[in-house]
Design a binder for these strands. Structure first.
Length: 1030
RNA sequence: GGCCGAGUGGCGGAAUAGGCAGACGCUCGGGACUUAAAAUCCCGUGGGGAGUAAUCCCCGUGCGGGUUCGAUUCCCGCCUCGGCCACCA
């Protein structure tokens, strides 16, 4: 009694694939290559999550399909295994992170294999393998050895960096320092986010609202020496090259947003030296004049001197409206600019700001705070002195850390100016428009941030905002006061972490004879790589920002090279490092000579399809692209972009519709699902849930549903009643009937198209339709069954392999050619064409598939029901769309309206309303006309009545005269009968009636069939209205 | 506050170069088989209405407008939900 039993079938085929190395990819592609990649998982202690197989099944289906299409497919899997949890586990239990990590990897590998993905397991790698991270270190050395040539917009070897003569003259160590300042990997003493709880420094991206992203612990800012990567140098290319990749627009937008390019101008405001400032804190006019003259002669300096406050603005056109300036509390000039009388207030403010966490700054954002420094700068546009304030709404880390404040045209400046009663001078006239209170803008009581026409701007008055920007930027640079400038939100990448469980930096710090660092650093020789992690005696945090590796054994920590003692860099790299290039290592994972063989790289790159979660939409993808561009610039890879096509899978929610989490108790474990329903059912369900990109809730009933489908497929082909595994008797070597062929070929065509579009949920629906059809067939031609099994195989590979074997095949179907379809077999002889009348579906006609528009029309006209509906009507127009999939008759009624006084009389005799009477005698059009007319009259009357100063009598007279103009004589009688004057709550009642019926009817667009429903309402309304009037 | 995305039956979702709304699945209801149950198979399942019936009609894709012979699809204006960023000058 062999029923479908995934518990035996699935391990059997997994073993087969492994033994036969069915999915091993060659060193170099044979034929057309396809590189399909999943974002490799972090092997957490919780094991695989149902979210992982979602994207992985999609890539697996693509791979299995493309293999059968003859593509040479590379599909690898590995582990992003450095990370904090293993280290924290080590601190708690003393278990070395490598041990924990290995155990987790083993669990993940078992689970991945359990799901039957067609990975080439020979290429498995982990970022924590020494053989892997030695090359991560090697790439870091490339970053260390590269500077960015702005002019050429590319990274070049540091040896090619032009060194200014004065630096060269100052000696070798000056040159080295100059080079170190220009490397893509450089050190910086910077305020960093120190999290005492985690014992580490975090990147800005890892801090959310003043708390650590992981664990939610408080974070404080302290200065510390850090490694930085100069990603900002690549900002423009990272943005521009988005144009050449096939990624979702939303992800591109996220990246652009993160890079945050904005175009504007830098402008210098003169502050002068102490000697240039008068007793009131304002620059002395003479000094300012001298400065202006000097600037006109020398131009705008590259770096701002001490005599100016440099600002960045995207609105140089509002320069005349800059009535004050603001500098960040961390700005280097704060102390200098603070006048004695303000120093207590400023110091208190800055101390308070320093204590504030990011969270506080965000939460207090509603209320602006700040303090006057006592000093002034000179506005270069109008030569007026403007006060300089210190406020934390200006960020030290963006632009120059100082702004010119234009309260009339910037919301934040406006709020600030209001609070501190600073002058507000409008310089942009918004012009008259309905939504903008122009008067208030011109009075300075409302902020306006849009474009307009310049005012209060000297000779620029009347200039449009866009033109003004251009002109003033040009003028400023001619005068030496400013220049065009571009700014980015993107900051350089803080690349060091104070963890043990990460890649050590291949960097040595030179020590003097006393064992103190000299400040000089050098790279570890390539030949000395890898720098492995030392055995650590313990993993206890020592509570200082220095990394755990500071406690490493001395022989590791203090190497001696050429008789000189060094100290190793003890920071380690962040988890992002390993994931920045793993897609390259998969191509050549065992190479001991190079990070990748360049022939192999050229042959397989780029990644053709990359699928993973949207949580990596910004950071991982930006970092990886950055590294890739560096490698590209250094001639180490052949493509400018690593990932040609990117797809983000959506999140899978718990059955309760919330995010899966232990706390909610709604986590679904793949092991359980596979044990109960099988891996094929899990795979199929995850694809059937909905579109890949959508967020979808899990449903066990849904899993059960697709399992039912697999059961039906099993019964379709095998004989479940037999003792042994054998074919169902209905499966015979028979010719396909026309309909069978149509179903088969349509299924092949649709599934093929859907896989190409990654529309996998609809692909499965098509296969279900196939199964539903053939289940009813008593003869199931073998050919159809075989082709169907091949089509199903990318989705449910285990079941398909088993059925393929039952169908008599000796080896795996993984490399069988993908079935082709025959368009002529799909074509039906006849098609059913919907017939619309006035846009409403009324009937269908069956016509030959190749029928012309004229043939469709005559067939439609011949249809009895259509004839009935068109009887007595004039066909104004017939529409048949080019594809011939529909016909629409546009008709106008020319049925004469024959409502006579006799009708009214007889209706009254039979105690009907006139409308009811007409309806009773099948004179629906007349009845509708009457009803609509009556309702319209009622409405008109209502409107007139409600319009003062009309009295009831006046209203009635007006109504009658209006009726005289538009309506036939005999209907006026009915109007009189209505005697209409209505109470207010008729409005509600009428609203429910679609009174436009009348108008539409008059224009002939309403089909007669629709009349009855309206009529009832209308008749009832009239009746009710009459009642009201008594 | 900014950017992006989404609103369709009891549920997950189909269908958009504008053309039969609700494919496929779940749920639920009915039936067949069975001593019975499970399993399986068949039928029905957006709401409302008319009819003994075959069948027919009306409404219906978040709300309000618009374009069109025809709008879930396109345009304008809102509402709601979700995601990301958030004082970026």
């Amino acid at each position: 009694m062999p029923r479908y039993n995934p518990a035996t079938i699935e391990p059997k085929w997994q073993r087969y694939w492994e033994e036969h190395r069915t999915f091993a990819a060659p060193r170099l592609p044979k034929g057309e290559k396809l590189y399909v990649l999943d974002m490799f998982p972090y092997p957490s202690g919780n094991g695989l999550h149902v979210g992982h197989p979602e994207g992985q099944t999609a890539t697996d289906i693509t791979c299995r399909y493309q293999r059968m299409r003859g593509r040479c497919v590379l599909h690898p899997m590995g582990w992003d295994a450095f990370g904090l949890p293993a280290e924290q586990h080590a601190i708690r239990t003393g278990t070395p992170p490598r041990t924990t990590t290995q155990k987790n990897i083993d669990t993940f590998r078992r689970q991945e294999k359990m799901l039957g993905f067609s990975y080439d397991w020979d290429r498995e790698l982990s970022t924590t393998d020494v053989n892997y991270f030695r090359w991560t270190q090697w790439i870091f050395l490339q970053l260390f050895d590269t500077w960015f040539d702005e002019a050429q917009q590319r990274g070049r070897p540091i040896a090619e960096l032009p060194v200014p003569d004065d630096v060269r003259a100052a000696g070798e160590s000056a040159v080295r320092r100059y080079q170190d300042e220009h490397r893509l990997a450089y050190q910086l003493e910077a305020p960093v986010n120190w999290c005492p709880e985690l014992g580490t420094v975090l990147a800005n991206e890892e801090v959310i609202g003043g708390l650590s992203e992981r664990g939610g612990h408080p974070v404080v800012r302290i200065p510390l020496r850090q490694w930085m990567l100069r990603i900002t140098a690549y900002a423009d290319r990272l943005e521009n090259d988005l144009a050449q990749v096939d990624w979702p627009e939303s992800i591109k937008a996220l990246q652009r947003n993160w890079i945050g390019r904005s175009v504007g101008a830098e402008v210098d405001f003169f502050i002068g030296s102490a000697a240039d400032v008068g007793p009131n804190g304002k620059p002395a006019p003479a000094a300012f004049k001298a400065w202006r003259t000097e600037r006109a002669a020398k131009g705008f300096p590259r770096t701002a001197g001490a005599d100016v406050l440099r600002v960045f603005t995207t609105r140089p056109d509002t320069l005349y409206g800059a009535t004050y300036m603001v500098i960040a509390p961390e700005h280097p000039f704060v102390e200098r600019l603070t006048r004695p009388e303000q120093s207590a207030a400023v110091r208190a403010y800055c101390e308070q700001a320093a204590r504030k966490s990011d969270l506080d700054r965000t939460e207090l954002s509603k209320e602006k705070t700040g303090v006057f420094s006592g000093s002034y700068a000179a506005n270069p546009a109008n030569n007026r002195p403007v006060p300089i304030w210190v406020a934390d709404y200006v960020l030290a880390t963006y632009g120059t850390g100082a702004i010119m404040a234009v309260p009339a045209h910037d919301t934040r400046d406006f709020e600030f100016a209001k609070k501190f009663e600073l002058p507000i001078v409008p310089v942009v006239d918004p012009g008259s428009s309905a939504d903008i209170p122009r008067d208030e803008v011109l009075a300075g009581t409302t902020v306006y941030t849009g474009a307009g026409v310049a005012i209060n701007s000297s000779s620029y008055d009347g200039t449009s905002t866009a033109e003004f920007k251009e002109r003033i930027t040009t003028a400023l640079s001619q005068q030496g006061f400013g220049r065009r400038a571009v700014n980015y939100k993107l900051r350089d990448w803080l690349f060091s972490r104070q963890h043990f469980w990460g890649e050590p930096f291949p960097i040595l710090h030179e020590l003097d004879t006393d064992g103190h660092p000299t400040g000089a650093i050098r790279a570890v020789e390539e030949s000395q790589l890898p720098v492995d992690l030392p055995e650590m005696p313990h993993f206890k945090p020592h509570g200082r920002p220095e990394p755990p590796l500071d406690e490493a054994p001395r022989d590791w920590l203090y190497p001696v090279i050429d008789g000189k003692r060094f100290k190793r860099e003890t920071n380690t790299m962040p988890q992002w490092a390993g994931s920045c290039w793993y897609y390259l290592r998969f191509l050549d994972p065992k190479n001991q000579q190079a990070f990748i063989d360049s022939e192999i790289e050229r042959a397989w790159m780029p990644v053709d399809l990359y699928i993973g979660g949207a949580e990596h939409a910004v950071l991982h993808l930006l970092y990886a692209r950055f590294w890739h561009k560096l490698l590209f610039d250094r001639g180490l890879v052949s493509t400018a972009e690593p990932f040609r096509k990117l797809v983000n899978q959506g999140m899978i929610l718990g059955e309760d519709g919330g995010k899966m989490s232990k706390a909610r108790g709604n986590v679904v474990n793949p092991d359980d699902v596979v044990a109960e329903y099988g891996a094929d059912a899990l795979r199929l369900y995850e694809m059937f849930m909905g579109p890949l990109e959508a967020t979808k809730p899990w449903s066990m009933e849904g899993v059960n549903g697709v399992r039912g489908f697999l059961d039906r497929v099993w019964r379709l082909i095998t004989n479940e009643r037999s003792e042994t595994l054998e074919l169902n008797a209905a499966v015979q070597p028979a010719e396909l009937t026309g309909e069978q062929a149509r179903v088969l070929h349509r299924t092949i065509r649709d599934v093929t198209g859907d896989i190409e579009k990654l529309s996998l949920n609809t692909a499965i629906a098509k296969m279900m339709e196939f199964t539903n059809f053939f289940t009813k067939e008593t003869v199931r031609p073998r050919e159809a069954m075989e082709k169907f099994v091949l089509v199903l195989s990318p989705f449910a590979p285990h079941l398909s392999e088993e059925l393929w074997q039952v169908l008599g095949h000796g080896k795996t179907l993984a490399h069988e050619p993908w079935p082709t379809f025959d368009e002529t077999a799909i074509k039906e002889d006849t098609i059913e064409v919907p017939v619309q009348i006035n846009g409403k579906l009324r009937s269908r006609v069956t016509v030959p598939a190749d029928a012309s528009a004229a043939a469709i029309e005559s067939a439609a006209r011949a249809e009895p029901r259509v004839q009935e509906l068109l009887a007595g009507k004039t066909i104004a127009k017939v529409i048949v769309p080019p594809n011939g999939r529909l016909i629409n008759f546009i008709v106008r009624s020319e049925a004469p309206l024959v409502i006579t006084s006799r009708d009214f009389q007889r209706a009254a005799e039979q105690r009907f309303t006139t409308a009811e009477f007409l309806l009773e005698h099948d004179r629906t059009l007349d009845a509708l006309y009457l009803a609509g007319y009556a309702v319209e009259c009622t409405l008109k009357a209502l409107v007139m009545y409600l319009t003062p100063p009309a009295t009831m009598n006046e209203t009635f007279e007006r109504l009658k005269s209006s009726a005289k103009m538009h309506y036939p004589e005999h209907l006026k009688e009915e109007l009189k009968n209505l005697d209409c004057l209505l109470p207010i709550d008729l409005v509600k009642r009428l609203r429910r009636f679609e009174w436009s019926t009348n108008l539409r009817y008059e224009s002939g667009r309403r089909p007669a069939g629709e009349v009855r429903g309206y009529l009832k309402t209308a008749a009832a309304t009239i009746e009710w209205a009459k009642g009201e009037m008594q």
